[in-house]
Structure formats: structure tokens, C-alpha cells
């Protein structure tokens, strides 16, 4: 499936007049391509995900999906930062949620879900509730839930934003591994430049207030990548993005150089 956004804007009406969250967003994302979006906070990254997910409508412009799956199947699944799991469902039921909404019978969906629960290393926690898991484990459940539903597109909103560095690293590798087995178009919001470089095929660097895509940076080196001195190209990219973001953050904070 391809995702094509054309001149998309999103304006919110507030008491102090309209506020433009996104302006002139235009891009095309190919099938199974992994895009990371980085930008200063409040640049409309989350708004962009919600637009693509169809939870909100763009003010102007259009979103198109070419080669969409047949009617009735899921187009996209969102993975939220931390609180996306239902606290009243066991790990297994959480993972099976997407299948349940598609009307799959209990036994069948539990079988599918169980396979993915094992794939993310939580086999012995299938019957536990989310509050009994660590934050990292919960995030794996969220990822398993999205993959089990098997949409052609995954929308991830800083899924590892609240994890410590080690756990984050492990989960990034897991996510890459699962994505290789089950390729999908991924739109991944993060504020972590290194994460973006490690994971994506292409990085969108956004400006703040209103959000625009300022640069699109291709990353062609093969995965798994390494951000040590072994790959000077990647270090170079990191510095470039860092400089752009610094400028944007200063602008959005109103600080002069």
C-alpha cells in the first residue's frame, strides 16, 4: 500500500482564534517503507499520525491510500506511548483485540495472538494484566497487538519514549526483527535522532508552529546499523539533523542565536 498526502493542513479552532497545527504537508510513502518523523515538541507530529489514522479530518488537502486492502480489513494500527493497553484485559486479550474487532472467533484469535505474544518474549505473561508488567513489557504487548491485526500500515507515536536506554535498544532490535518478518509501512514519531537513524528508510524533519516538513533525509545503509565511528555517513546525518532541530527549537522557544 502507498500513502500519499497532498497539501494537507490542519487548523484547530480555539478561543483565541484558529491555530494552524500542520501546513502544506506533502509526501508519498511507498509500500513497506519505514519513515521516522522528528521535530521540536508541538510541531504537530501526533496530529499528523491521527490524520493518517483517520481519527481526525484534515482542514484542507487530501490523504490517499493506493492499493488499499479489500473492504473490512484494517488499514492502519496505532501504537501509543504507554497507556494504550486496556488495563481490564489480559495480555492475550489485549493482543487479540484487533482480531476481535474484525469479528474473529475467540479460539482462533487467541491462537494468533498467542503466537505473537511468544514472538515478543511474553509467553509466560499471556494471562497477566498490564499493571503486572514492566513498562518495556507493556510496550511489547502494544506492538504485538498492532502486528497481529496485520494492517498494511503501522502508526507509532513515540512508542519507546518513556523507556530507559537499554530497554529501548533491545525493543528497537525486536521491532526491526518483527518488521523484517512482517513488513509494513511504518510511520514512526520520535524525538530521538539516533533512534530515527537506526530504524528508518527516510526521516522527515519537521519545523515547529505550524508543522511543516522541512527536510526529507534518505538513509540507505543496511540494517542493523551502528552509530559508532564505524559508519561515518550516519554520524554526518546525525549532525545535520541535530543542527536543523537546534535551529527549529530555538525558533520555537523564541531564543536568538
Amino acid at each position: 500500500m502507498e500513502l500519499i498526502c497532498q497539501d494537507m493542513t490542519k487548523v484547530y479552532q480555539t478561543r483565541n482564534g484558529p491555530i494552524s497545527a500542520l501546513e502544506k504537508i506533502t509526501f508519498t510513502i511507498r509500500d513497506n517503507e519505514w519513515i521516522c518523523i522528528v521535530g521540536p515538541s508541538g510541531c504537530g507530529k501526533t496530529t499528523l499520525l491521527r490524520l493518517v489514522a483517520g481519527l481526525i479530518e484534515p482542514s484542507t488537502g487530501s490523504i490517499r491510500y493506493s492499493g488499499e486492502p479489500s473492504n473490512g480489513t484494517l488499514r492502519s494500527a496505532l501504537v501509543f506511548q504507554e497507556h494504550g493497553l486496556f488495563p481490564w484485559m489480559t495480555v492475550l486479550d489485549n493482543v487479540a483485540f484487533g482480531l476481535e474487532m474484525q469479528g474473529m472467533a475467540k479460539r482462533q484469535r487467541h491462537e494468533h495472538a498467542q503466537a505473537f505474544v511468544e514472538k515478543v518474549g511474553l509467553a509466560s505473561f499471556a494471562q497477566n494484566y498490564p499493571h503486572e508488567l514492566s513498562v518495556g513489557m507493556r510496550q511489547r504487548v502494544g506492538i504485538a497487538r498492532a502486528f497481529v491485526a496485520n494492517p498494511p500500515m503501522l502508526l507509532m507515536d513515540e512508542p519507546f519514549g518513556s523507556l530507559d536506554a537499554q530497554t529501548k535498544l533491545v525493543l528497537q532490535q525486536e521491532l526491526l526483527r518483527i518488521w523484517k518478518d512482517h513488513p509494513k509501512l511504518i510511520l514512526y514519531v520520535t524525538h530521538d535522532i539516533e533512534e530515527a537513524i537506526l530504524l528508518s528508510d527516510r526521516i522527515f524533519v519537521m519545523t515547529g508552529h505550524p508543522g511543516r516538513i522541512r527536510n526529507q533525509i534518505n538513509i540507505s545503509s543496511t540494517r542493523p546499523r551502528d552509530l559508532s565511528c564505524k559508519e561515518p555517513d550516519l554520524m554526518e546525518i546525525k549532525w545535520n539533523i541535530w543542527k536543523i532541530l537546534e535551529e527549529e527549537v530555538r525558533k520555537s522557544l523564541g531564543v536568538l542565536m
Binding site: A53, L55, L74, S76, A77, L78, F80, H83, G84, F86, W88, M89, F97, G98, E100, M101, Q102, A149
Partner: peptide, 27 residues
């Protein structure tokens, strides 16, 4: 019930009935 739970339900295409039985009631 946090909005995010309703977002998840909508995102996965929950019907009105499913939203009630799986989100609103247990929540």
C-alpha cells in the same frame, strides 16, 4: 475512562456495541 482507550477502539474499527462491552463497561 481515558480518551486513548476510545481512540484504540476506533482505530481497530470497534462497533458501537463492542465499544460498550469492551471499553465502556469494564472501564
Amino acid at each position: 475512562i481515558p480518551t486513548i482507550h476510545f481512540d484504540v477502539a476506533r482505530n481497530y474499527g470497534a462497533t458501537l456495541l463492542k465499544t460498550f462491552t469492551r471499553v465502556i463497561w469494564p472501564g
